[in-house]
């Protein structure tokens, strides 16, 4: 019942104010549910060591046996392989097309992704197929004691 003597305009603005407060309250409570859920869903940051990585004895043996090796450093997977001139090279192992893992094909001197037939040269440049970008290059060096170290910072020209 409208109050006698109380102007309708004032009444309406009071109702409007309550509606706004109710709306804000509803949005606030929705946000207080949605935000924690979204934060919960987003995975934690990368864990594990970053920086130069020394290959283990088993890894080195595998590299000699199969001419290629994939190692993990933090969140990246790196393909290490020996080219025709026995030079060690390292490229990002994840294909820039749809994220499959690439491989070194020693006979044809190329890097191949079996998923959608993308082909790269040994510097990671796209030769044919659908990949839109080159593979990032890393450097791989042989220490004085014969051990292999993969530098996990991207090479300057690629960064």
């Amino acid at each position: 019942m409208p109050d006698e003597g109380c102007p309708l305009k004032k009444k309406r603005s009071r109702r409007g104010f309550i509606d706004i407060m109710l709306g804000l309250g509803f949005m606030g409570s929705t946000a207080s549910v949605v935000y924690p859920v979204l934060r919960y869903l987003k995975p934690l940051g990368p864990s594990g060591a970053q920086g130069p990585m020394k290959l283990t004895k088993e890894d080195q043996a595998k590299l000699e046996r199969e001419h290629m090796l994939i190692v993990r450093s933090g969140t990246t997977r790196i393909l290490v392989f020996e080219d025709g001139q026995q030079k060690l090279r390292a490229l990002d192992a994840r294909c820039t097309h749809e994220g499959c893992t690439v491989q070194f094909v020693p006979g044809e001197s190329l890097i191949w992704c079996a998923c959608h037939n993308g082909k790269f040269d040994l510097d990671g440049r796209v030769l044919s197929g659908p990949p839109p970008r080159p593979l990032a290059q890393y450097s791989c060096t042989r220490e004085a004691d014969g051990s292999l170290v993969v530098n996990t910072d991207r090479k300057k020209e690629e960064a």
């Binding site: 290629m68 190692v71 993990r72 690439v102 491989q103 079996a114 998923c115 959608h116």
Partner: peptide, 25 residues
Amino acid sequence: PLAPAYPGIKPEWYFLWVYQLLKEF
């Protein structure tokens, strides 16, 4: 996760058309 994708790898038959489209682009 540290092995390369093997040759002839294909998704389920009902995704094959999308797979092929990705190859054609």
